[in-house]
Structure formats: structure tokens, C-alpha cells
Design a protein around this nucleic acid. Structure first.
Lengths: 199, 199
DNA sequence: CGACAACCGGAACAGTGCTCCATTTACTTT
DNA sequence: AAAGTAAATGGAGCACTGTTCCGGTTGTCG
């Protein structure tokens, strides 16, 4: 057993060939750049050109476009997920934590152009992206919502999935229309979540 | 001056040729059918096949896909627009009228498959549809919102355009996910609009 | 060093949207 | 009624997609 390797788990019998590794990194960098400038629907050929490789190579590494998107945004999604519990511990109230986390979530969708759009976009493409998003973020949203409901700050019975998806939807189109500021509506939505005064 | 003609205004020097008229009607019927079954992004060729004509004819009548969509949904959009003032006159309160009208609006988006998606979908395509929608529906929304604000039922300062667009966004993807029911969120949003208790 | 498997690139195929123009067809004029 | 004219047609053609496939190349290991 060679000792020069990192301690990463390695399920495959053989590690990736060095050139393949390099190419994958180049590809991810190029894809991130193209996604940012031309959206997640940018032509594969354009990404291939920017990365200096053929389209076959891209399909070899990432069979579906969704896989590529997941790989590119993996880091940011992870950060957002991990911020949830931290906010819950630090904020003044569960609702405040929820509000801040939603802000972070919106940041994620708004900063990375086209991510919001990709998250629904016909729903059949991008299925793996959808799945990963949910797998990672739904538990966090559930935890925050439960905490706020437990503290009696919001009405109970809100579906975390629905909220996440709704917020995602509201973020669509924020950058091709200055009149549309999703955050205002999202604040409104969170207000609507608050338990109405004791009656 | 011939007297056998209807009294329609006729800005063009010549009225449409009879065969063209017939074709346009066949086309609209076929398009409505295809849109309903395959969404507004259905291939033009498919619509042409169903209507029994070449794609050239379609492009002649409706230069952009958006024009075709507008023509197909013209009637329903008009109905929704006209319902606004009526509801305002009939309902118990302006807010109730607003709520009902929003329900109608959601019906429009949810019943006609893909309409909601078309309304944002990259925003560059479908620009005429967008424009027509706004031209017709924005005044209605403004009127309802103003009335509710005037009655002190909701906070003032809400942007009608933003609300319309937000609701439209929330309606996306309702039919490919049973877990997602836009109406619940929209009700929440309207709740958030209500003026908080006097403070 | 050689052999072999992993890897690469892009040619090729199958759908798209949209344009263009030779041909057909309805309306008008004589 | 017949001929002339302009509107209308429809599909071939072009440009651009996503995706597959395989001959040639290049790391890696014995």
C-alpha cells in the first residue's frame, strides 16, 4: 500500500490517470466561467472550446449537463448547507436565523447566474442537480422551520420543500429586469409565515 | 363603398385573403392543442404538421413564437383582465377582491400548461407575450392593490409588477411535482402583504 | 522498454429554429 | 369568362444545438 497518497476514500480499484485529473480541473474552471457569463444552458461546445478540449471529453467526465453543474456548484451549496445550524446557534431567535439563512440561499441563487433557472427548467433535465440540492438543503430548511415553529414564531404546517422551491422560483429572472427584486417578495413571504397575533 | 361587409375597422388597404383567414384559424386551433399537450416550447414543425401546413406559413402569420402564444391565449388573458374591476365591485372588501383575482390569475397560469414557464423563460424570447401580459394585467393589479391599500388592508408601497411576476414565478413547475402547490405559498404571500397590527 | 488500458478529440447523426423563393391560388379587371 | 396580378403557400436549406462513437494518443505498470 503506497503511502504517498492522501487519505481520501477511493472506491474505484484504480485512481484517475494524471492527465484525466488535470483535464477535469481545467474543465471545471472553464465551465464555472462559462456558466457565470452565459448561464447554465451555454452550449457544450463553448465550454469545450474554453477548456481546450473536445466535447467527448466533457461527456466522458460528466455524462449529463446536470452532473457538470452539480460539480461546479458543489462547494457553494455545501457552504450554504453548513451555515444553517451555525445561524440557528448564533441568531437571536429561530426566525431570525431562518431569515438570514434564506438570505444566504437567495445569494447562492442570485450570484450564480442561471442556477435558479436550472433548478426548475423543465425538471427532467437537471434532475441530479435537483436531487443533490434537496438532499443537502432540505434537512437544513426543515431544521430551521421546525425550530421557528417550536418557538411559536411561525405557523406550523409549512412544507419545507415547498418553501425552498418557492424561493427558488422567486429568484428566477432577477437579472434581466431591474424592476424585479426577489428579496422584497421573499421578505413578504416570510412575513406571511409568521403566526398571526394571538386571537 | 360596398355594404356587404361588417363594420370592423380595417386599417390595411386590403382585407386578408379568404384562404389565409381559414389557414390562420386552423393554425390557432392546432397550436392551442399542441401547446396544451406538449407545452409552449413544442417544435414548430409539430404544430405545422398538426395544422397540415408548412412552417413557412406559420412564420408568415406569426413571425415569432411569442406572437403565436399571445394569439392563442388572447381570449383567456382578456377575461382575466376584465374580471378585476368586476370583483372589486362585488367583493366584501378590496383585499378579498384582490385575493380572488389572484386566484383567477393563478388559474390562468396553471390551467394552460407552460404559460407560466413561457412568461419568464429566458425573457428574451417571448418578449411580446410578456409585453401583452403586462399591458393588459398590470393596470388591473395596480387598481386592486391601490384599493386595498386605500382601505388600509395591506401595507402600501408594494410594486404591482413585482407581485405579478412573483406570482407567475411561483406557478412554475406545479404540474411536474405533486409536492409543490403554488397556491399555498401565494396565500402566504398575500398574508405577508397585510398591514401588520397597528403599531 | 514495451504493452495495454485509459483517455482524448472531433467527425457524424439527429433534432431544433428560422429564411427564402419557386409555385400555387384567390381576387380584380377588362 | 378569361387573363393578369399580388398574396399566400410550403418545404428545401442553413445554422446551430445535444449526444454518440470510435480511431488514434498517452499515461502507467510489469
Amino acid at each position: 500500500m503506497p503511502t504517498t497518497e492522501e487519505s481520501d476514500e477511493r472506491p474505484a480499484p484504480r485512481r484517475m490517470r494524471a492527465d484525466a485529473q488535470r483535464n477535469q480541473e481545467k474543465l471545471l474552471a472553464a465551465a464555472a466561467e462559462v456558466f457565470a457569463s452565459a448561464g447554465v444552458d451555454a452550449p457544450i461546445r463553448q465550454i469545450a472550446a474554453k477548456a481546450g478540449m473536445g466535447v467527448g471529453t466533457i461527456y466522458r467526465h460528466f455524462p449529463t449537463r446536470s452532473d457538470l453543474v452539480v460539480a461546479v456548484f458543489h462547494h457553494q451549496i455545501e457552504e450554504c448547507a453548513q451555515a444553517g445550524p451555525r445561524l440557528l446557534a448564533d441568531a437571536d431567535s429561530p426566525f431570525a436565523a431562518l431569515h438570514r439563512w434564506v438570505d444566504l440561499f437567495v445569494d447562492l441563487l442570485v450570484t450564480k447566474h442561471g442556477l435558479a433557472q436550472a433548478l426548475q427548467s423543465d425538471s427532467s433535465r437537471f434532475a441530479p442537480l435537483h436531487a443533490y440540492f434537496l438532499d443537502r438543503l432540505l434537512p437544513v430548511a426543515t431544521q430551521l422551520l421546525d425550530a421557528a415553529a417550536g418557538a411559536d414564531e411561525i405557523r406550523s404546517g409549512t412544507h419545507p420543500y415547498e418553501l425552498l422551491r418557492g424561493i427558488g422560483n422567486l429568484c428566477i429572472g432577477h437579472d434581466d429586469d431591474p424592476r424585479y427584486a426577489p428579496r422584497r417578495l421573499i421578505t413578504l413571504l416570510l412575513q406571511g409565515l409568521r403566526r398571526p397575533g394571538p386571537t
